[in-house]
Lab assay of single mutants.
Amino acid sequence: WEITFERNGKRITVRTTDHRLLELFEKLWRNGADERELERLAEEINR
């Protein structure tokens, strides 16, 4: 799966075969987690 999240013109794409990681990322994104931390998390998930 691949999903791109966008907020205030900032886009972060997450790619993984584990839908649970996408759900976790989406919850953090929707709850306003720090964008720098989300970028780092996305990099780890995308590996």
Rank of each mutant, 00 (worst) to 15 (best):
K27V: 12
T17E: 08
A33D: 03
K27F: 15
F5N: 00
E44I: 13
R30T: 07
N46R: 05
E44Y: 15
R36H: 15
R36F: 15
L38V: 02
G9H: 03
R15Q: 06
A33E: 07
R30W: 08
N31M: 12
T17M: 13
W29Y: 09
A33P: 02
L28H: 07
T17S: 14
W29G: 01
G9Y: 01
E43Y: 06
W29I: 06
I45H: 02
L41F: 12
E2W: 08
T13R: 06
T17Q: 12
A33Y: 08
R40K: 12
R30I: 07
R7P: 01
N8M: 06
I3E: 04
R30H: 08
E6F: 11
R47H: 11
T13P: 01
H19S: 12
E2A: 03
R36E: 14
G9S: 03
E26A: 12
F25Y: 02
R47M: 13
R30A: 10
I12W: 14
G9A: 03
F5M: 04
E44Q: 11
R15F: 10
G32M: 07
E2N: 03
E23W: 11
V14P: 00
K10I: 14
D18A: 06
L41N: 01
G32H: 10
R40G: 07
K27C: 13
A42W: 07
H19Y: 15
N31V: 05
F25G: 00
R7H: 07
V14N: 00
L28A: 13
T16V: 09
K27G: 06
A33R: 03
F5D: 00
G32V: 03
E6D: 04
W29C: 03
D34A: 09
R11T: 12
L22W: 09
R40V: 10
L41D: 00
I45N: 01
L38N: 00
L22M: 11
H19C: 12
N46L: 08
L28N: 03
R7Q: 05
K27W: 15
I12P: 00
E44N: 06
D18V: 05
L28P: 00
L21Y: 06
E35W: 15
V14C: 03
F25D: 00
K10Y: 14
K10T: 13
E23F: 10
T4D: 04
V14G: 00
R15K: 13
T13K: 07
W29Q: 02
W29V: 04
T13F: 07
N31F: 05
A33G: 09
K27M: 15
R15V: 08
E26S: 08
N8T: 04
F25A: 01
F25V: 02
E39Q: 11
L28V: 07
K10N: 08
R11C: 08
R30L: 10
A33V: 10
R15M: 07
L22K: 05
E39H: 08
K27N: 12
R20V: 10
T4A: 06
I45D: 01
R11P: 05
T16Y: 07
L24D: 05
T4L: 05
L24A: 11
W29F: 11
E37S: 10
K10D: 02
V14W: 02
D18P: 01
W1G: 06
N8G: 09
I3C: 09
G9Q: 03
A42R: 02
F5E: 00
L24V: 08
T17C: 11
R20P: 04
